[in-house]
Write a protein that binds this DNA or RNA. Structure first.
Length: 196
DNA sequence: TAGAGGATTGAT
DNA sequence: TCAATCCTCTAC
């Protein structure tokens, strides 16, 4: 399966890309261990709104990866505990990214369980902090390409006919009116979505 | 340089 | 409802 190309990410429309990433396949290959899952939930973030780390084009040491050209990973530590994975989009200098919030496991489930120290697959990748742990994604991925060799996204199975719901994003009440933007996308009726 | 807070999660 | 946990950013 071929990776999505640079051009997919380097469009200046982050909500369109967030919607189109639903149903795609996210894979990591680490030390020969392949783990992958179907992306079932995303959120879009843009410099134009307060929910974004790079609101108003504010450049910091943490968010500088967001200003790179689309197609790289922006991974940061949340609440001191969880690594969250974003895919940077847009052209260079345009700070936009898509947060991957949930996946449905497709391959390497046994190794995901090992990483999570769990015995049941039950919803182990239903949340942004959980899927990164299951796939072995840490801060060391920050700035690395999502077109391989360790991390990549391809079209996945059944690329057509996904019913996608658009709704408000989670956990950004501090963003005021911007918290009401319908920039969260998920696959309808999918049990791996983090929250309905 | 100190202090506050966070794009979460799981247990109570 | 709340604690875990630590990096980042802001203010001084």
């Amino acid at each position: 399966m071929e990776c999505l190309p640079h051009l997919f990410y380097q469009r200046n429309n982050v909500t369109t890309i967030a919607r189109q990433l639903i149903g795609k396949k996210l894979t990591t290959v680490l030390d020969g261990h392949v783990t992958s899952g179907l992306i079932v939930e995303t959120e879009a973030y843009s410099f134009k709104e307060k929910g974004c780390h790079a609101f108003n084009n504010k450049l910091t040491n943490r968010n500088k990866v967001m200003f790179e050209a689309g197609g790289v990973a922006y991974v940061y530590l949340c609440y001191g505990i969880h690594s969250l994975l974003n895919v940077v989009t847009g052209q260079q200098g345009r700070a936009e990214a898509v947060l991957i919030r949930a996946i449905q496991p497709l391959a390497g489930q046994e190794f995901m369980l090992h990483r999570m120290k769990l015995k049941k697959l039950d919803r182990i990748t239903s949340g942004p902090g959980k899927l990164t742990k299951a796939l072995g994604i840490t801060h060391s991925f920050n700035g690395s390409s999502v077109m391989g060799p360790n991390l990549f996204i391809d079209a996945g199975p059944n690329p057509h006919r996904h019913k996608i719901i658009a709704t408000t994003r989670i956990g950004i009440d501090y963003a005021g009116a911007d918290a009401l933007l319908p920039w969260r996308f998920y696959l309808k009726d999918n049990e791996w979505v983090s929250k309905w």
